[in-house]
Amino acid sequence: MKLTNTLFAGAALSVMTATSALAQNAKVTIGDLSWTGATAIGHVIKAVIEGPMEGEAEIVEGLSDGGAIAAGMDKGDGTADVYTDLWMPNRSGIWDKYVDGANSVAVNIPYEGTQMIYVPSYMAEKGVRTILDLAKPEVAAMFDKDGNGKGEYWAGAEGWKSTKMWQVKFKSYGLDELWEAEVLEDATFKGQLKAAIQKEEPILFYYWTPEWVHAAYDLTPIQELERVDGCEDMDLDAEDWLEVSHFNCAASNASIYVAYSKSLEQRNPAAAKMLSQMALEPAVVNQWILQIGRDKEDPRDVAEAWVADNMDVVNGWIN
């Protein structure tokens, strides 16, 4: 009887140990956000966990709604563990509810996202470098494509708030007498950008980071006025948004995080530690977007190749 009890206790202990080990190495579920930068980051996280960390990770196909991902991270049941590209202050609702509020979601060290107006660097070499340069009629004339006396700049696509923002900025800087906005789809504009750069023609345009154009071309941002109190006051939802809005300074940079469920600290501590220490470089993200977005390479192949070639960086995240 004593021997039977001993065997039973030993078997139970073995089961408990195995269960504990499994609980410490739970599968990490990653959201499937729809933009290319988020796709790239998700596949890199998966490649790190399944490669050097010898764990299990899954990008949940179709899990693309940010609110649903955040709610899953809050639950802590493994339905959603990672939000790959959390832009702040854009997603302040998620941050306020789960990071600061419920304290159920943690984040890594962020990288910066920017939105600026650019010229190819060959135009910067010709003296087009600042907002004050754009106020010179001879500069605007260089960018006049249709001969109507105004230079054109790409402000973005129809329906983007940033498209309205740049029209407000040009009005607020007093540039609307010399410049007019072009509103085109992103793909159409990228075709124009490629053609202009191939011919070294003038082109002025809004863009943001991270994006592949910065990895593909030599671009220079136009320097704007520094931010001061009251320089940005916009109501882009108003019917008369252009008249009531004002913005005559540089836009604030975004802070972009990898967010993850704090439940991973118990369910998979190694993955939680890696995610907390993951530090991304904007230039690297630009390159991933170039390969996946422009060159149509498989995101998994891009991620696995990058991890294999950058184990010094990856080991810094893990250890």
Rank of each mutant, 00 (worst) to 15 (best):
E112M: 11
S121I: 01
D74F: 02
Y83L: 13
L184R: 12
W160Q: 14
A135M: 10
D144L: 01
S121Q: 12
D146C: 07
S104P: 06
D81R: 09
K75A: 14
L134P: 11
Q167N: 11
W95P: 05
G191Q: 13
G159W: 01
K161S: 11
Q192C: 00
R91I: 00
V99G: 03
D85M: 12
V99F: 05
V183K: 03
W87E: 06
G76R: 10
V105A: 08
W208T: 14
F189T: 00
N90S: 03
D81T: 07
L175C: 09
W208G: 07
A141S: 15
A181H: 07
G127M: 09
M142G: 01
Y118T: 08
W208H: 14
A135F: 04
A157S: 15
L184E: 11
E125V: 00
L175G: 08
Q115G: 09
N148H: 02
K164H: 05
L204P: 10
E201P: 00
E112V: 11
G149N: 05
G78S: 13
V183S: 02
K161V: 01
T84K: 03
F205I: 03
M116R: 15
I117Q: 13
E177H: 13
L132Q: 14
G174F: 10
K136N: 13
D96N: 14
V128R: 00
Y206M: 11
V119C: 12
E200S: 14
V82I: 15
F205V: 06
W160I: 00
I117M: 15
V105Q: 05
D96V: 12
A141G: 01
K169S: 10
